[in-house]
Design a protein around this nucleic acid. Structure first.
Lengths: 350, 350
DNA sequence: TTGAAAGCGCTAACAA
DNA sequence: TTGTTAGCGCTTTCAA
């Protein structure tokens, strides 16, 4: 409408600025005040459509990108959280962290990852750094045998969640898989198959998970009206070698199991290998269920291994939700256990 | 020296402040200017010892912690970098990221982790977020079959490193394991054992790593004066099942290998299992070497598996060093491959 | 509808 | 030796 077509006399507006452009640059090039520019870029505030358009146009041209650090200073929220892992991130923490990150990214929250490998000094350093960066929340995760001391000291009101890990502070929010329930799932599945002599081969007892799964094993046996047979529960280590060894010794005795529930998939795989080599048919003679549902094991096993899935991604997603909730002011706490699920494959197939 | 012992009349200084204390609070409580407080806390600047001490004392008391966001605004460096992974983080990326994080943490640099799972849209969103947070550098990592398009657009001068991944931009710095060299290591090791009929079972050829390892296999055979025997190279998938299948068919023919170099440890493990079941002795009749040196496989295998280690932690550490260098103004570029190493275990033992 | 100015928390240059 | 002040890039009153 207006005569604002460029003429040969108009020096073309400088379309670039040295360094990363700031809102000041946008304002200058658009011939408006810096406050106006801000309004124009923030969708809010009343402004003439043309000014807004002009400002946005300039911003686009020079590749303006708001400085989130400066914004943070203002809103007293950094849109940033920290994750401290005490196990170096591994097979278990990983799906959790992945889901958590995905959930938070959707909310515009970025995630700092720190690995403290169970070294309290490194943990302190990481925490220092994170607090300096004014994180809005903190997630602590680990593969730990037992409760850990609470992390801290922390500024009042900083949301903290322990996932796959548990603080000794009972008020802290801990999100964990329901190990006991998972064991019940496995054992009652085996019982429902008509198995009556169900063994349990598992890892070291200093893992709380081992104790909980044992307890699930026992209560499921009882619920099914079965006896726990002497010597059918064996605690060892988390390896295939132990699974092989345990099965060999278990089946050397006259009274043999007709089902085995294993504390993890590696033990289960060792068990399967030895059973096959002994000529014992699976699931014909013996049905086997593992724990973790780790595809590397379950799918390579012969036959493919039924297993309990801890639903770690769901756990991570929920941790994300809870954290968002707490950052928004919600008060959450206590130890919460989330259900596992059973994945049936051939090793306990019909 | 001075009479500044607290008297009953002195109201005790308020030791806390509402919210996170700022340097302003420190200054007020210490009765100095805010500039002085800053100097006192920063070790730099000339200041009387007592003022400095007093300020630091107050800071400690009220739990003052400098706001890194505010500092960043000033120094135009956020002491923050981003990692974008396109493979969801897995077995391979993990050691890299872990070592990288450790190296950078030592430098006071925190790491944002983003998972884009090969979705360009999510990658763009993550990148946007990271650039908004004014990261000082970017690491791109992936488990990819092939070169990826360069990430971007990026502000001029932002250091970027591709680790375990390669951009199609030849100027970009890529850090990769020397797959070809690793294969040479494996095959010449087997040759040095006196093996002359060496097979190579590997993954899908759309992986560049597969093609490179094949090439290493061939050049090492040639270097040892050996022939590649027809049918001894087989490309399939990265699974144990494929390892089992390939060995079964390979050994069904009259001309049998006396050694197998496998493209990963899973294939190798499948191979070992089938060899054992066929009654072929390892390493007596056939020596086997895998690739990845993944303990879950190498140690559980029977016999324990020799393997090529890509030294991913070293790769991560080096990526950290390079990034620090580039952030400091260094110019680095090009595709750099780092040596693998051979870990001998029983499957190719003496 | 737009501009001016104060301030988020901190640092650094300059005065006192 | 210490205080004052002007920013870093942005948002948000409050005036014009």
């Amino acid at each position: 409408m207006k005569d604002d077509a460029p003429t040969p006399l108009d020096p073309p507006p400088r379309a670039t600025v040295a360094g990363t452009p700031t809102i000041r640059d946008v304002a200058r090039l658009a011939n408006v005040s810096i406050g106006t520019a801000s309004k124009a870029l923030n969708a809010g505030g009343r402004l003439s459509a043309e000014t807004r358009e002009k400002v946005q146009q300039v911003a686009r041209e020079i590749g303006y990108r708001p400085n989130d650090l400066a914004q943070s200073l203002h809103r007293a929220k950094s849109r940033t959280i920290g994750i401290i892992s005490n196990d170096s991130f591994g097979r278990f923490t990983f799906p959790i962290v992945e889901a958590l990150e995905e959930r938070l990214a959707a909310e515009g929250i970025a995630v700092f990852m720190c690995n403290a490998t169970d070294d309290p000094e490194r943990e302190r350093q990481h925490l220092d750094q994170l607090l300096g960066k004014r994180i809005d929340g903190l997630v602590v995760t680990a593969r730990r045998a037992d409760k850990r001391p609470s992390i801290g000291p922390l500024p009042d009101g900083l949301p903290v969640i322990y996932v796959f890990s548990q603080a000794d502070d009972p008020h802290a929010l801990s999100l964990l898989p329901d190990d006991e329930g998972g064991a019940v799932l496995a054992v009652s599945h085996l019982a429902s198959l008509g198995r009556t002599r169900i063994a349990h081969l598992t890892g070291p007892e200093h893992f709380e998970a081992v104790r909980l799964r044992q307890s699930g094993y026992r209560s499921a046996l009882a619920a099914a009206g079965l006896q726990e047979i002497e010597g059918f529960y064996r605690s060892g280590v988390w390896s295939e070698a132990w699974g092989r060894e345990a099965v060999a010794s278990l089946f050397a005795k006259p009274e043999r199991p007709d089902a085995i529930f294993c504390g993890n998939d590696q033990i289960a795989r060792g068990a399967l290998d030895t059973l096959r080599e002994m000529g014992i048919s699976v699931p014909g003679d013996v049905a086997v269920v593992g724990f973790d549902n780790w595809d590397v094991m379950t799918l390579a096993a012969r036959p493919p291994l039924s297993s309990i899935d801890m639903n770690l991604k769901a756990l991570g997603r929920e941790a994300g939700n809870s954290l968002i909730n707490m950052i928004g002011g919600g008060k959450l706490g206590g130890v919460q256990r989330r259900p596992c699920s059973l994945v049936v494959r051939q090793s306990s197939g019909a």
